[in-house]
Amino acid sequence: MQPIPVKPKIAVSACLMGFDVRYNGGHKESRLCSHTLIEYFEFLPVCPEVAIGLGIPRQPIRLVGEPDNPQAVATRDDTLDVTQPLAAYGRKMAAELGDICGYIFMQKSPSCGLERVKVYRANGTPLKGGSRGIYAQAFCLQHPDLPVEEDGRLNDPVLRENFLTRVFTYSAWQQLLQEGLTRRGLTVFHSRYKYLLMAHDPVQYKVLGNLLGTQGHTDPKELGPRYFSELMVALQKCATRRTHTNVLQHLTGYLKRAISREDKQEMQHLISQYHQGIVPLVVPLTLLKHHLRQHPDPYLAQQVYLQPHPENLSLRNAL
């Protein structure tokens, strides 16, 4: 009997899961989170404003002062300053949520927004630019490698696929750490992620390969965290049609002696159509996987690039 796979844990702003925790007593439910992704992830809802004792409903807060060091104060009573409680709760949750593999934050929130949160002067006029929510800033400082994203940006299919790819990568790394990090384990992990990394950042793909090659005798407990941090930075770059095409050509090369001339022409035709934006990535990938089922290759079978997330999520259908 196959063990039931453990769902990766993702922390999420509670209002996005439909909880009535916003300042006005409402929510901002994200159907992507509450109806689609919930089948594949265990969500841990968090509302820092409620957690620090602000009521429901409550006086809204906003960021005031300098964008690089704003204060979170109530809009109608600026003597109510919750900057320190929000920051302290961010550090507290960062320590408690050590087993999560990602975090989805509420956009534009003075506590949870990741970027471009409005900052106001004392007289109430907005400043140019923006900042990061107080809680989100404190939390993310403690987990620099953790995949984080705002709910609104997840409506973009490219950003959605990128974020969830990083979440599953983070989960795989956590599993490797639980098993015990060894030089061999690190090498095998890098080998499995070779083509995914090549699709996201071809330059960093070579850099990380050299890192493992030149420092192979370094204690893996020292080398591993450095390797993984650089990997996660590389995966933040969104793969493009050009880089995906390059990877598809590499993978097809393994089949050059196995498939017929006509099959090669069909494969090249679909890769070209993908490169030109005529068909989505899933089209050449589906044919490639078909050929690999007919002509199995042990090295390619382990490549995460071919299936970095559950197929039913259909994340590559719009790429």
Rank of each mutant, 00 (worst) to 15 (best):
A14T: 14
F43G: 00
S13N: 10
P45I: 00
R31A: 14
G18P: 04
L16D: 04
C33M: 12
V21I: 08
I10V: 15
F19A: 14
I38C: 09
C47W: 04
K7E: 04
S34C: 08
K9F: 01
E39Q: 11
K28I: 11
R22I: 12
A11L: 06
N24K: 04
M17S: 10
V21H: 01
G25P: 04
K28F: 05
H27Q: 11
G25A: 13
L16V: 05
E42D: 14
N24W: 00
H27K: 10
I38W: 04
L44P: 15
H35Y: 14
F19D: 15
V46D: 04
G26C: 09
C15N: 10
G18W: 03
G26M: 10
V21W: 03
G18V: 05
G26N: 11
L32T: 04
L32N: 11
G25C: 09
Y40G: 04
E29T: 10
K9T: 02
I10H: 02
V21G: 01
F41S: 02
I38Y: 05
M17T: 07
C15W: 05
C47H: 04
E42T: 03
L16E: 02
C33Q: 04
H35T: 07
K28R: 09
Y40E: 01
V12L: 08
V46P: 00
H27Y: 06
H27P: 06
N24V: 13
A11T: 02
L44Y: 14
F43C: 04
V12S: 03
V12Y: 01
V21K: 02
G18S: 07
T36I: 12
H35C: 09
I10K: 02
H35V: 08
F41E: 02
M17L: 12
M17R: 03
L32S: 13
G25Q: 11
N24D: 15
H35L: 13
K9H: 13
P45N: 09
E29Q: 13
R31T: 10
P45R: 01
I38D: 07
E29L: 09
Y40D: 02
K7T: 03
K9P: 01
A11M: 10
L44F: 12
I38P: 00
G25N: 09
I10T: 05
P8C: 03
R22C: 09
E39H: 14
A11S: 13
S13W: 08
F41D: 00
S34E: 11
C33V: 11
F19T: 10
L44S: 12
K7F: 06
V6F: 09
Y40F: 14
E39V: 02
E39G: 06
E39C: 08
E29M: 11
I38N: 08
H27S: 12
A11I: 03
C47M: 11
C33W: 01
C47R: 01
E29G: 08
S34R: 05
L32I: 06
L37C: 06
L32M: 15
G25S: 13
L37G: 03
H27V: 09
L37M: 09
C33Y: 02
E39N: 12
P45E: 10
E29K: 14
F19P: 05
R22D: 07
V46W: 01
R22T: 11
N24S: 11
D20M: 13
F43M: 07
F43P: 00
L37Q: 00
T36Q: 14
K28D: 08
Y23T: 03
L44E: 12
V12N: 01
C47K: 01
N24R: 05
